[in-house]
């Protein structure tokens, strides 16, 4: 795939837009799936990096990857110059499940940090299917908020920042959009740091809300061969890359 644009959002984040180098059409990709990215010309890294699909723009045949500088591999990726060819394996993993038609409650898509990435594609798909997604985005501070304009085009956006520099101050789990009084929530989709997902899962369990989370366990192959990225589930250890990355919380062995 060729890098069409590298939008430096700020020091820590880049939005890479890629298109197939041979001009072919991108395959169908479902919300929640991911890609395995080879780090170009990197002698200090060895493995590919799994990255969530942020958005698939069918109008210009581009795949969007939202990348946070989390180490040597991603640091290399956010420096990618336009025109660079990067080797990707895609799409991988399962996907978020669509809500039942005719459901009446709210659909809340919760993303924390770079975990907002898959929520954009999911929100776009939900909107296209006639649903009204609502986003709850969490970040450390105002400068860590990502793609807010894109989310606002797609649905109602609630924001919380740890320092209160934008939206409500505190964690997403303290946000009024998630309060009991905020109306019936029929489904929560969540991606973010593990403590955040566990806290959201705990609320969902207590209120019997159907909840799916997207896990970020460290991977080697992404193909179900190495058995490194396993998560303990009610079925035992399963590969997050092939059985996930999306799990319904009732499949996980997270406990309060």
């Amino acid at each position: 795939m060729r890098v069409v644009e590298n939008r430096h959002i700020h020091a820590l984040y880049s939005l890479l837009r890629l298109t197939p180098a041979d001009g072919s059409k991108l395959p169908e990709m479902l919300p929640g799936q991911f890609v395995q990215v080879e780090i170009p010309d990197s002698s200090s890294t060895f493995l590919r990096r799994p990255i969530s699909i942020n958005f698939v723009d069918t109008t210009d045949n581009t795949l969007w990857l939202l990348i946070r500088n989390a180490g040597k591999g991603t640091a290399r990726l956010i420096e990618s110059p336009e025109g660079l060819i990067i080797n990707l394996i895609l799409p991988l993993g399962n996907s978020f499940s669509m809500p039942e038609q005719g459901q009446t409650g709210r659909l809340l898509l919760i993303g924390g940090g770079v975990g907002v990435a898959p929520m954009l594609q999911l929100g776009k798909v939900l909107k296209l299917a006639g649903f009204s997604p609502e986003f709850l985005l969490g970040a450390r501070s105002k400068t860590d908020l990502l793609e807010v304009d894109m989310f606002e085009e797609t649905g109602v956006v609630h924001i919380s920042t740890d320092d209160g520099s934008f939206g409500e101050k505190g964690l997403v789990t303290q946000h009024s959009a998630l309060a009991d009084s905020s109306g019936i929530i029929s489904k929560i989709y969540c991606c973010g740091p593990a403590p955040m997902m566990k806290a959201v899962a705990s609320i969902a369990r207590k209120r019997s809300i159907d909840c799916e989370v997207s896990l970020e366990n460290m991977m080697a192959c992404g193909l179900g061969a190495c058995l490194c990225c396993v998560e303990n589930t009610v079925k035992g250890n399963v590969c997050v890359c092939t059985e996930g990355p999306v799990f319904n919380i009732n499949q996980l062995t997270w406990h309060d």
Partner: peptide, 21 residues
């Protein structure tokens, strides 16, 4: 097999501890 984490990237290689799952 063994509990997660089972893998670490290292210089020009990786460590694994899958444990024969």
């Amino acid at each position: 097999g063994n509990p997660y984490p089972r893998m670490a990237e290292t210089p020009s290689g990786m460590l694994n501890a899958v444990g024969l799952q």
